[in-house]
Design a protein around this nucleic acid. Structure first.
Lengths: 195, 195
DNA sequence: GTCTATAGGGAGATAGAC
DNA sequence: GTCTATCTCCCTATAGAC
């Protein structure tokens, strides 16, 4: 990207976040320098500090934005009627949302240990809120006799781990479309919860 | 740890590996310095290079050892008769083995991107071999009509992701024993594959 | 808002004494 | 086999000119 001079406040901010997201996902937060990010944005390293307080704040921002977007999108998702519909909606939503944002997902799962304690608590609370959304569905379905689950909490964690795992191997243009992947996972989830 | 002088070739090597395993798992490969590792071992940084070629070689060694131990242990595991027994054996083995080595597991999954291409190819091949062990079980069970699986390859990845996820939340002394956790996961896996 | 320059510190790795 | 000392390089973050 050509280096320019002058003011670009509308442009540099988003570009900074996009570059950091890509580089952190590819190489890891600790392995990426502010100079690398700046080079990708097309400015000098010092200029980045007009947009972020420090490197740690940048990481926390990326993770917070991702999780807030996730929660907002799930809130807006149609959930049908009853726990079985809701679980199918969750499964398809989770896979679609995560496959559309591989870099942000990767960072949100891998860089938790690089958050300082204050940021970690905040991010962890957001992650937990999303998890609770699934847990509520499973508990309701169990109470209604629709699901057969000996341990709702464990089932919640097992289902999320299984679904999120899709991001480690799925590549667009591969053997299966995202739609087909979601359908296959839904069938496995449905059976796993005894529905 | 008290600093001593003299020769400790029998002691320092294992201590170096143990310290690196712990620190890499806790803070990440890129965030840990050779000086930190040396301090934990109780020697100066330069002394570490009597045991490792460089930092990258240390990481590759830790991951290779872990995966070779995993493959050897699975080879020795009794697998019963038939695909259903074998799948149960795999499920219980995978959970037990992974819960006993949380640091090594964490590193093997999180630090792949910090391997240089040569080491990555080698480590990835070992991981793939383990994955194939499960895939063979699922394919055999499907052929025998014991499992109901629309896509064996995807089921393999889904099951491994679900099982490995246990390492992100399980803590010894928590609500569930490792035995109980394995039993609950086995029930979910069994249902998910339609057995 | 971005630049250049730099403060102040830490990184990986090696050399040679003991 | 470990030490001290050091090479060379890179890091985050800030200061002040434009």
């Amino acid at each position: 990207m050509a280096r320019t001079s002058g003011s670009h406040s509308q442009i540099t901010g988003p570009r900074l976040r996009a570059a950091a997201l890509r580089l952190f996902a590819r190489h890891g937060y600790a392995a990426v320098s502010m100079r690398q990010i700046a080079a990708e944005v097309g400015v000098q390293a010092g200029a980045l500090y007009n947009y972020i307080p420090d490197k740690q704040g940048l990481l926390a921002d990326l993770m917070r934005s991702h999780l807030e977007e996730l929660l907002a999108a799930w809130d807006l998702e149609p959930k049908g009627t009853g726990p079985l519909d809701a679980l199918e909606a969750f499964t398809r939503f989770h896979i679609r949302f995560h496959l559309e944002r591989p870099d942000a997902v990767f960072i949100a799962y891998m860089e938790l240990r690089n958050l300082d304690p204050r940021n970690f608590a905040e991010i962890e609370a957001l992650r937990k809120r999303y998890e609770t959304g699934l847990e509520d569905i499973l508990r309701a379905g169990r109470a209604a006799g629709v699901f057969d689950l000996p341990d709702t909490k464990l089932a919640t964690l097992a289902v999320i781990a299984m679904l999120t795992g899709v991001t480690t191997w799925y590549r667009p243009g591969g053997r299966l479309s995202a739609e087909r992947v979601a359908a296959l996972y839904w069938e496995m989830v449905r059976k796993a919860v005894g529905a």
